[in-house]
């Protein structure tokens, strides 16, 4: 996975870069399964390797295929990145170890969900019951974000500029979004 990411940094052909991004996110999906997050892996595989690749390719078709020229590793950003990375690695020394059941995250609301969701909500898939029931507001917000993003894309590139009269449909959508 790190290898794919590194090749992403260096690669010059944007088309190949998009393909590498697809591979990268598929690998991430595999990693999620290893770490017990089946729901997340499912989404990542469908979204990252499917939809976003198609969208990226669409953009490439609209813009350009090639990066301008090969650049050597630029020193200043490289220094910033290395310094930040070193700092973060120093910070991880205090973090709970991987898979440690005593980590603080496992003593907050997590156990509550695991114990009570069967009797309070019902579905055996805890992820679903947390998503839709305990954190319903959260999910509502996320759905609104997706909706707004789609409306935004519509507003940005929805109409070709040659058509002179404004499209009444997209205006309606904007209003609806405000109401929601």
């Amino acid at each position: 996975m790190a290898v794919t990411a590194f090749s992403l940094v260096r690669i010059h052909n944007l088309f190949a870069a998009v393909m590498m991004l697809g591979i990268y996110s598929l690998l991430a999906a595999v990693l999620y399964v290893v770490m017990d997050a089946v729901d997340v892996a499912f989404t990542e595989a469908a979204v990252g390797a499917g939809i976003s690749t198609v969208l990226m390719l669409g953009t490439l078709a609209l813009t350009t295929r090639m990066d301008k020229e090969a650049k050597p590793l630029v020193p200043v950003p490289l220094a910033i990145v290395t310094a930040t990375g070193a700092l973060l690695i120093y910070a991880t020394l205090d973090m709970p170890h991987y898979g440690d059941p005593g980590a603080p995250i496992h003593h907050h609301v997590g156990p509550y969900y695991i114990e009570k969701s069967a009797s309070e909500v019902g579905p055996p898939n805890i992820v679903t019951s947390v998503l839709a029931s305990y954190r319903g507001y959260d999910t509502l917000g996320e759905v609104t974000v997706v909706f707004t993003a789609a409306v935004g894309v519509m507003a940005l590139i929805g109409r070709s500029r040659r058509r002179k009269k404004p499209d009444p449909k997209s205006e309606n959508h904007g209003r609806k979004e405000q109401q929601a």
Binding site: A37, D39, I105, V127, V130
Partner: peptide, 10 residues
């Protein structure tokens, strides 16, 4: 822990 899964899913 299911909570991070939910957050990342969305």
């Amino acid at each position: 822990n299911p909570l991070p899964h939910v957050l990342i899913l969305t």
